[in-house]
Amino acid sequence: MSRLIPEEEYGKRPIGALRQWMSGVRDPYLNNVEAKEKTGQGEESEEQLEEYQREVLSVIRKAQDTANNSQYTLFRKFYRSAALICCLTLTLMLLITVAYLPPVGNAGNPAHNEVAAKYIKDGMQDTGAVNIVTGMILDYRAFDTFGESNVLFIATCTVLILMRNDKKKGRGSAEEEERRDSFYEPKSDKILQTSAMILVPFIILFGIYVILNGHLSPGGGFSGGAIIGAGLILYLNAFGIEKTEKFFTAKTYKWISFCSLSFYCIAKSYSFYTGAHHLESGIPLGIPGNILSSGLILPLNICVGLVVACTMYAFFVLFRKGGF
């Protein structure tokens, strides 16, 4: 590219600066926004340090002297009266709104429309699930549940970005941070280990039961997955990360989430496609009430449960150690 003006002058103009920033030549934030590490520490004499300390102490004393601070008293008065006014206004608004609500249990209420009536009437026949709620969230409105599962996955990704600690060795590494964080925590506590040994299998079994019975009884992927995640966290707390690392690493998390979410997406896309075009989907609904019934709901429940359990465990590990 030929330019009439030299490179340095071009960089000073806004368009040139933008172009340089886009191509990564210049970072406008570098040395401008981020705090720099102080260099030349320890060069101050003791007098300077003492004066600095006295200054800090006087500032703290001035800040904590709330009785004589007229600005603070004024602010507190304002704060209290504003809080009172806000609370009263909100209460009044809500009470007025409540007065205009339709009476509870009235047959003419907007909630009693044909959608709810259809779900209750045809729900079991359409979805094959005895539990109408599960039939709703995993069949009629499965797309919404897919979005929720993805939200969990995205939340884990965000926490991963914020908390991830890739350093393997030395100061600030993941192992050292974990050791420092859990320095006072009781380690290898006999009572906790014994009770965890007894409880964890039952907790995880109960979670699996809740997931597998999602279409028959209250429960399903979200609650069952949360129970399994809690069992895993209890196991981790009792026996340390070395034991759980043997069967659950970042790779396991990645593959389980990826497989569950993509299976959910593909299966539900197929069923929506066939449903929208009035085609035969070929998925047997089975007899309502059997464990192997209601078509896609059981596998989808398992997928959601796996994603939720992994997300809970991953959150805990990330906050604890900053990595798997």
């Binding site: 925590e185 506590d189 007894i198």
Partner: peptide
């Protein structure tokens, strides 16, 4: 049974942390 397993153990852990700290 579950509460009698879980609650004393958690109390024990909290008290142990308090005694350590």
């Amino acid at each position: 049974i579950f509460l009698w397993c879980a609650s004393p153990v958690s109390s024990h852990l909290i008290s142990r942390l308090e005694c350590t700290v």
